[in-house]
């Protein structure tokens, strides 16, 4: 009965959504409203004014910098939320701790061999976001996945030693902080908060710095979620 009701609701909602969406122009069609108004303006004068050859980066970090700042804050807030709620402190009774499985020498060697390449690729994605698809969030995610992989294989303690513990919260906060600094630099040098100052090289430098900060922030947030689930984690 409840299932039938849920199904009915889902079908009605899906019908409403489809009816609404079906009137929109097909995605990618050049005469859709999306491509005529603001986006067209970005494409016309975007790359020079936006400061990055990759238009997506220009929109993300320049035209709509406040949104990206907000997203970075959302990630940071989620990390703080996970740490504050402290999942590791909540479980009662003895944890089902699997017996310590010694690291296989094969896996250990292979991971050590591959890790630098993966890290390099992550860095490449972060920096390449300036000209090609990619960017801070994407590269940061790859970096975070690498750190989690390393922690899975080598054990969380080794990873925690790799991360600078006393300064961990500074590193975690890097993305919102660099954004705030950029905003203030914009006010000081270009007259508006979040504006990018004029000489092209400075502009590019700031964008690259922002991308790096976003990448590190995203990676550390992901590792933070993972480590908070780890058994012996007490912050």
């Amino acid at each position: 009965m409840r299932n039938a009701l849920a199904l009915l609701i889902v079908i009605v909602l899906a019908g409403l959504m489809m009816a609404g969406v079906s009137q929109l122009p097909p995605p990618g069609s050049p005469d859709g409203a999306v491509h005529r108004h603001v986006a067209a303006h970005y494409i016309d004068g975007g790359t020079e004014a936006g400061g990055a050859p990759n238009l997506v980066t220009a929109v993300l970090l320049n035209y709509r910098a406040l949104d990206t700042y907000g997203e970075v804050v959302v990630i940071f807030a989620a990390l703080v939320a996970v740490l504050a709620v402290g999942l590791s402190g909540h479980s009662r009774g003895p944890r089902r701790q699997p017996d310590e499985l010694p690291v296989s020498p094969v896996v250990d060697r292979i991971i050590r061999l591959l890790a630098p390449f993966i890290a390099l690729f992550a860095l490449f994605m972060i920096l390449e976001g300036h000209v090609l698809p990619g960017g801070g969030f994407q590269g940061g995610v790859v970096l975070g996945a690498l750190l989690i992989l390393l922690s899975l294989v080598l054990g969380p303690r080794r990873i925690r030693r790799m991360l600078p513990t006393p300064a961990l919260f500074w590193t975690r906060a890097i993305a919102p902080l660099v954004f705030a600094l950029t905003a203030i630099a914009g006010l000081a040098l270009a007259g508006w908060l979040f504006a990018l100052p004029e000489p092209a090289w400075l502009r590019e430098l700031i964008l690259v710095g922002l991308e790096l900060a976003i990448g590190i922030g995203a990676a550390l947030a992901l590792v933070g979620f993972y480590l908070s689930l780890e058994a012996d984690h007490h912050d």
Binding site: R64, L66, D67, G70, E71, V73, V74, A77, A78, V80, A81, V82, A84, V85
Partner: peptide, 23 residues
């Protein structure tokens, strides 16, 4: 004054509110 911005800020205050309840 911007729709997507509205959504982003909504997420910021919502996520912090969920965590504050769970505290």
């Amino acid at each position: 004054a911007d729709l997507f911005n509205l959504f982003v800020f909504m997420e910021i205050f919502s996520i912090s509110a969920y965590a504050l309840v769970a505290l």
